[in-house]
Design a protein around this nucleic acid. Sequence first.
DNA 1: ATGATTTGACCCTA
DNA 2: TAGGGTCAAATCAT
Length: 235
Amino acid sequence: MESCWPEHLPSDRKKAIDELMKGREFANQLKAVLCDSIGEDGSMPAEDLVVKILNSFTSTLSILNRAETDEVSQFPASTHVGSPCWDGRKSEDSGESSKSTSTRKDRRGCYKRRRTSHSWIKNSPELVDDGRAWRKYGQKVILNAKYPRNYFRCTHKFDQGCQATKQVQRTEEEPPMYRTTYYGHHTCKNLLKASHLFLDAPDATDSSMLLSFGNGRHHHLTNKQDTPFFSSFHQ
DNA sequence: ATGATTTGACCCTA
DNA sequence: TAGGGTCAAATCAT
């Protein structure tokens, strides 16, 4: 498998940083070129794109630099040994048996600190499809929040080891507002859905970017999965 | 049959 | 200990 990142190779990291700095420099130059050639009408999607690229470079560089100093012990050493580096939870090699309380206890130490990982927030009045395949894995009622928070991970977490997750929470503002907090970057190859977006052919049956927002811990719905979804494409 | 969602329990951090 | 993040069995949808 090509799952684990070469995080323990400082020389590779240096090279990666070097390459990223070069890339950022090139993006800067590209931006300058674009600024020269773009008209005065104010709309410059290309420059917008460049800005995003630059932000991406900058973020990645800061992640790498930070990791060099204080994220050395981000992952428990045991997770690198003989188990998938992205989780290492399934350590019950004794087959099933489970059911006992001891299997739950095995989760000890498996959580990572959220604070140290890179994140960014996106607010939107609608639930917009970001072109990625997400899988909902949890929902929590948050203190002092009117709406529950929804937790998503990348669908390819286990088959490609993609670490990306996101949280979506509706704010209490009058025009409904959805705050999406992204954690980590996608390392998976997931271009199928993205191309679907550009084709603008939602097929009506596969608008898989669906989020649910109940009013609390229990949805007061007639049926369990009657109407718990909002389609991001319905306008 | 397979994959996604729901939801209560578990576990970690502050 | 409370609040929040994650797991995983049960359930639902395709």
